[in-house]
């Protein structure tokens, strides 16, 4: 298991290869469909949200508000990433993102951005909302809650030992491409 702590250097990212299991600690920002579209259309991030050398997590958590006004994260697995394919590459480039956590992988545009800018795709286990919520040690802040609603807001999470697997690296490698090609070949033999 390779430890990744935010902020992450380009050198560290370049050392990662498809298939590496990683354990993530530090700050991650959630962002999914509404946030990606907004940023892609030229929307500005709140000044407190710094993605440079940081991580975007494709996640719409379940959050409960405590009596003191703080938030408790009670479920926090990844959402399907491929919907962000039209936007992700540009966002990696523009904001200096080093890691994207999600599930299901992304496509060629993002893979090219990972290579050009030094970023990796970190695959978390879809549906494992409780195991992953346990890794969220603190909900530090929320942005765009009113505009986008709770699942689509940017949640600033402090995480510890969050498990994921590198499935797209910064050298053009993609487990998703490999598995698709291999499974298509197996299927062709069985038709």
């Amino acid at each position: 298991m390779i430890s990744l702590t935010t902020p992450i250097t380009e050198q560290k990212i370049r050392s990662l290869k498809v298939g590496d299991p990683v354990s993530i600690s530090g700050i991650v920002f959630t962002g999914r469909d509404a946030v990606h579209k907004y940023l892609h259309e030229g929307g500005a991030l709140p000044p407190q949200v710094n993605l440079r050398d940081g991580i975007i997590y494709h996640c719409g958590p379940v959050m409960m508000k405590e009596v003191d006004g703080s938030w408790r994260c009670t479920a926090a697995g990844p959402t399907t990433s491929i919907r962000e394919e039209p936007y992700q590459g540009d966002i990696i480039h523009k904001f200096g993102v080093r890691g994207v956590i999600g599930k299901g992988g992304l496509g060629e545009k993002t893979l090219a951005a990972c290579k050009a800018d030094g970023c990796v795709y970190l695959h978390a286990i879809g549906g494992a909302a409780q195991v992953l919520a346990e890794c969220v040690k603190k909900v530090r802040a929320v942005y765009f809650l009113e505009e986008f609603g709770s699942p689509e807001a940017i949640w600033e999470l402090q995480v510890e030992n969050f498990p994921a697997v590198v499935t797209m690296d910064s050298h053009g490698g993609s487990l998703h491409k490999e598995v698709f090609a291999a499974s298509a070949a197996e299927l062709a033999k069985r038709l």
Binding site: G60, P61, A129, Q130, P151
Partner: peptide, 11 residues
Amino acid sequence: LAKRKSQPICQ
């Protein structure tokens, strides 16, 4: 864990 904590299996 989901069963024990009575929290959603998936968010």
